[in-house]
């Protein structure tokens, strides 16, 4: 049951997207998501679609991986679409009893579906081409300015990378405790959801106790190696912008401008609506 969880959906590769500075990819994803919401029109979605297709092709990641994320939010999208269709006031197209579907509602639902699925695909491209470590590094360096408003950026990034480092260890520990409890007659499989949840208690308590013990040991080990927070700390693998990263920033800016122009001057209407 718990054995199947895998973390991080990094897809190893050497494409240009894999090699880009994580800060560029974070900025790009952010610009992409903001553009979906700020410039919401059929014509700008055409531009976004083109951009997504280009990114998927140059990432060299099989498109199936990209779309995998969509499955998990399919239900959410369906519910959102239904609510939008029925509850948005405006010109009714179909009317059954007290329920009505409005033109505005259908438009809204389509926009919403586009936004959500593009948001998921867009961020999948980032997580599939960036290792979790690069991601935390990128966040730490990219958000360094937030130190000035007293956000402990370094500490948060450090916590994230330690959490990532300990996931395999805690997984192994979980399996060990499970085997130990099963060998003493514990039953993790049968019963309804409540019984199943209850049966996890003898698994979770030892796991928590051991996690705290490990945390304590690790804190000592970090201190012993001179860790004293982010001040005066240097980097073994500093993030340095290369030429390709600057080009990528230009492309991102170009994309944002195209999205804006398509939204402002694009005149494509949804063809099948009255």
């Amino acid at each position: 049951m718990l054995r199947e969880i895998t973390l991080g959906q990094y897809y190893p590769g050497t494409s240009i997207l894999h090699r880009l500075d994580p800060r560029v990819k974070l900025t790009g994803t952010l610009v992409f998501i903001v553009s979906l919401f700020a410039f919401s029109s059929v014509s700008s979605y055409l531009a976004a679609t083109a951009a997504l297709i280009v990114m998927i092709v140059i990432s060299e990641v099989p498109p199936g991986f990209m779309l995998r994320g969509l499955r998990t939010i399919f239900l959410l999208m369906l519910i959102t679409a239904l609510f939008n269709m029925f509850l948005t006031p405006g010109d009714p197209i179909v009317k059954v009893w007290k329920l009505q579907i409005t033109r505005e509602g259908v438009e809204m639902a389509i926009h919403m579906a586009f936004r959500l699925s593009y948001l998921i695909i867009g961020s999948s491209i980032m997580t599939l081409t960036t290792t979790p470590n690069q991601l935390t590094d990128g966040l730490e360096t990219g958000l360094h300015w937030m130190n000035r408003i007293h956000v402990p950026v370094h500490e948060i990034a450090m916590m994230m990378s330690i959490a990532l480092r300990f996931i395999p260890i805690l997984m192994e520990e979980t399996n060990r405790i499970m085997s130990a409890q099963i060998s003493r007659g514990a039953d993790f499989e049968s019963g309804g959801p409540i019984r199943k949840a209850k049966s996890l208690i003898p698994l979770l308590i030892p796991l928590f106790v051991s996690a705290f013990r490990r945390a304590n040991d690790l804190a000592l080990a970090m201190e012993a190696r001179g860790y004293h927070g982010g001040d005066g700390r240097t980097k073994m693998k500093p993030l340095i912008y290369k030429k390709r990263d600057r080009v990528a920033y230009l492309i991102i800016a170009g994309y944002a401008i195209v999205m804006f122009l398509m939204w402002k001057y694009g005149k494509i209407k949804l063809p099948f609506l009255p």
């Binding site: 470590n133 990532l164 480092r165 690790l218 080990a221 970090m222 190696r225 700390r233 240097t234 073994m236």
Partner: peptide, 18 residues
């Protein structure tokens, strides 16, 4: 419980970084 980095070389670099 004393290895901090998620790659061997990064862990060895932790002390010098500090």
């Amino acid at each position: 419980n004393q290895i901090i980095g998620s790659v061997v070389e990064e862990d060895v670099g932790f002390g010098p970084e500090n």
